[in-house]
Every structure is written in structure tokens, then in C-alpha cells.
């Protein structure tokens, strides 16, 4: 079947079977490989994208379910001039990534959090990131980056 969705503001179409996952469709049909597939068991959150403004795991949704939807991926996060947006820049400034594999999902999750809660506490951030797993940084720097992206003071050492 043909599936059409608006991805990062642009209408895009491709072929999908019933079983084609949204993550597979984005990567293989639309060529948007910024969305990573980490575990493929809905645990790690590397594949996090926004569908109609809501954060979802694209490996646990069928492409056909997103037919006609507005989808936002990591490729659409940078500023119009190509510079990093405030969240991405904060991840760089606070060393919120090491290998970078989880980062697209972390950034999309952070964007979703800050939209709902522009000044989250550290606890709010940790609660919100429960579905995003990072195996390098131990989360402290990710939490700091998100605090910084929200314009709040970043403690020298994050608690916990």
C-alpha cells in the first residue's frame, strides 16, 4: 500500500506492507536514517519520533498507522540555517552523548518534555526519560543538557 505522511514539514510517500514499522519506513523508504533502531523491542527509545506532536517509539507503530500524520524526526530539529537547535547544542555543550546512538531518541524525548513542561525539575527529566536508554553516559550529562536547554541553572554534579 502507499503511505503518505508529512515528515518535518514535507509531504513524503512510500510503499509499505501491513507489517512495515514506522521506523523501517522512515529509514528504508524515506532514507531518514537519523531515527535509530536500538533494541526493536520497544524498550530503548532510540527510535523516538513525534507523531501528531506526540512522542512515540517508531519501532512499535506501523507505518500505515501514521498515514496522513505529521511526523517529526531528528532530521527536522536543527534551526533553519542548519545550526544546532537549543537542545542539540546543550547536548554538545554538556557532553550529553558519547557514542551518540541513543541521542536522536533522547533529543526527541527532551523536545517533547520541554514542550509540555518548559522548566522541568531534575526529577521531572529523569521520569520523562524512563523510556530512553543510554549505555554510555550514565544519564547525568543528558539530564544536565536538558536542564540547560530549558534555560535553568545546571548543578555542578547532578544528584543520584
Amino acid at each position: 500500500m502507499k503511505v503518505t505522511m508529512t515528515v518535518n514539514g514535507k509531504s513524503m510517500s512510500g510503499d509499505a506492507e501491513g507489517r512495515t514499522l514506522l521506523s523501517t519506513f522512515l529509514r528504508e523508504e524515506l532514507g531518514l536514517t537519523g531515527t535509530h533502531i536500538g533494541c526493536d523491542t520497544s524498550q530503548c527509545g532510540a527510535c523516538t519520533v513525534h507523531v501528531n506532536g506526540k512522542q512515540v517509539k517508531s519501532c512499535t507503530m506501523f507505518a500505515a498507522e501514521a498515514d496522513g500524520a505529521e511526523v517529526a524526526t531528528i532530521e527536522g530539529q536543527a534551526n533553519a540555517d542548519g545550526s544546532l537547535n537549543v537542545i542539540q547544542q546543550a547536548f554538545q555543550d554538556h557532553h550529553g552523548l558519547q557514542c551518540g546512538f541513543c541521542t536522536p531518541g533522547m533529543v526527541m524525548a527532551a523536545a517533547s518534555l520541554l514542550e509540555q513542561n518548559p522548566k522541568p525539575t531534575e526529577a521531572d527529566i529523569r521520569h520523562h526519560l524512563e523510556g530512553n536508554i543510554c549505555r554510555c553516559t550514565g544519564y547525568h550529562n543528558i539530564v544536565k543538557a536538558i536542564l540547560a536547554a530549558s534555560g535553568q541553572e545546571v548543578p555542578a554534579v547532578a544528584a543520584e
Binding site: T48, K54, M61, A109
Partner: peptide
């Protein structure tokens, strides 16, 4: 329940 992405679906 679950995490934010799970709760949206």
C-alpha cells in the same frame, strides 16, 4: 504506566 512514549500509544 510504562514511559511517555508508551503512554501516548
Amino acid at each position: 504506566i510504562g514511559d511517555p512514549a508508551v503512554r501516548n500509544r
